[in-house]
Design a protein around this nucleic acid. Sequence first.
DNA 1: TCGATATATGAACACATATTCATATTTTCA
DNA 2: TGAAAATATGAATATGTGTTCATATATCGA
Lengths: 101, 101
Amino acid sequence: MQNVNLDTLFELSEFFRIFGDTTRIRIIQLLMEHDVSVNDIADMLGLEQSVVSHQLRILRTANLVKPRREGRKMFYALDDEHIGEIFNTGLTHILHKKKGK
Amino acid sequence: MQNVNLDTLFELSEFFRIFGDTTRIRIIQLLMEHDVSVNDIADMLGLEQSVVSHQLRILRTANLVKPRREGRKMFYALDDEHIGEIFNTGLTHILHKKKGK
DNA sequence: TCGATATATGAACACATATTCATATTTTCA
DNA sequence: TGAAAATATGAATATGTGTTCATATATCGA
């Protein structure tokens, strides 16, 4: 097994916590396709711009997404391939469970 | 991409939320090795029995663990291999990030 | 520079949730 | 059956967190 101390387990739970919100997981799924600007995220998900900005800050702080300025727009993208990979691993589990019923 | 509607995304976030707590992730890690009884979990993690029972209920309700009675002891085990897989995928990400610093 | 557009931020509020403490429930064994 | 051991549960409390609303900041074009 890999080296896991209490500190690492805490970070791990913090990391998973970020995925544990509907708004954030919807944003993550959207960004799996391609970069999207803040207002476009809000429009596509039917959310207020403020909600999106607040959640993007949480995602940014956790290094799950990274911003890129283009004129007065801000485009957000997933930070690395791991994010989508974890999303898909979880999704596979969910769909597998659903099938089982 | 796989079929994902709003409902599935909600379930997915709920699923990840379970991993998003230090106590629960510690229990999960413990159960990755082998089944453990409630009091043993409490002892090994230095937690109160009540805390462990409460969190086990959450894990049980979310189908992440399953109980097995043996005498007056209850042994808990991970529900399927996916749980450990997701744990490891997340852990790999964390350790990778740490290395990068 | 001024107005418009795009995004970020702060405070307030409502709600969810983890822990604690006390106690109930279940099972075993004498 | 009654006591002890193992686990579960409920209420209370404190803390965390997502959304809302208002407003600040930043950038571009006229």
